[in-house]
Design a protein around this nucleic acid. Structure first.
Lengths: 146, 146
DNA sequence: CTAGGTGCAAAAGGTTTGCGGTTAA
DNA sequence: TTAACCGCAAACCTTTTGCACCTAG
């Protein structure tokens, strides 16, 4: 192995990738670590920039490849909030995304234990659902009041 | 006025545009009518193609301009379901979007009267929220079973 | 050993912008 | 009358693809 692997303690990234039919590579490990380090819902471009700090030769195509593999094996979720770039979120618990239209920040809010539960139309097999709440965050609301 | 206006009966498009500070134009009327005609959540590109049938000189830039105006004055919602093009939905009632990962179709399901209600974190001013349910529609599920 | 992954560069897809002419109010 | 809007074309941003080389299993 040509690079340090630095496997994070608790996660089972290697196993989860294998289960999904994907190989474990240093790039996938690193992209996932980048997402875990700051849970601020970065775009692929932002993940690319952060990844290059420790892995200068990584390419944009590889970042997309890694993100897609992580999404397909259930370690990461895509978050679509507005026209423009997709964001990525490594929080797999049930939660909604609060998006501030003023400053663009996104934060997670866990859903109550017995979650709202969307309607289950006959025949439709639900895989997962995403709740995106749009509005103004408290910081921006305060700033605008003045 | 250089074009037929064909104002639809019930809606108050002209007034709603004016309230939002927008002008009423034949293009905006037509783009909105195109959305109402088939509520299948088309992309801007698809709206452009359909609009050109009756208004051959309309441009893509104008379609985006019209869609944005309609969104800003509360007549249309943007729907972000996957990487790629944004879709547009003229249904302003509370509902969620069911997206079939197999065939790409999207359909609306009204939310129960006393809707799920997302958490309301202190200070965050909610404007609206979007619920997107991903899965396999009944047609595709049946087809795959065989 | 080899299917799958990587890095690079070019292409494709989707959206925005600048500009000269037109029009709703 | 005039700020807003239109159509066109070019620019811009995001994502995908093709290809030669490499590597995890």
């Amino acid at each position: 192995m040509s690079r340090t692997e630095k496997p994070r303690a608790g996660d089972h990234l290697s196993e989860r990738l294998a289960t999904g039919g994907f190989r474990f590579t240093p790039q996938r490990r690193h992209v996932y670590d980048v997402l875990l380090a700051r849970r601020d819902h970065p775009t692929a471009e932002e993940v690319f920039i952060r990844s290059k700090r420790e892995m200068p030769d990584i390419s944009m195509a590889t970042v997309y490849n890694c993100l897609d593999a992580l999404v397909q094996c259930g370690m990461v979720r895509q978050v679509q909030l507005e026209r423009g770039a997709t964001r990525y979120c490594p929080n797999m618990q049930e939660h909604c995304h609060y998006y501030c239209a003023e400053c663009g920040s996104v934060f997670d809010v866990a859903l109550p234990a017995h979650s709202p539960a969307v309607p289950r139309p006959r025949g439709f097999k639900i895989d997962h659902y995403d709740i995106a709440v749009h509005g103004i965050c408290s910081d921006c609301a305060a700033r605008k009041k003045r």
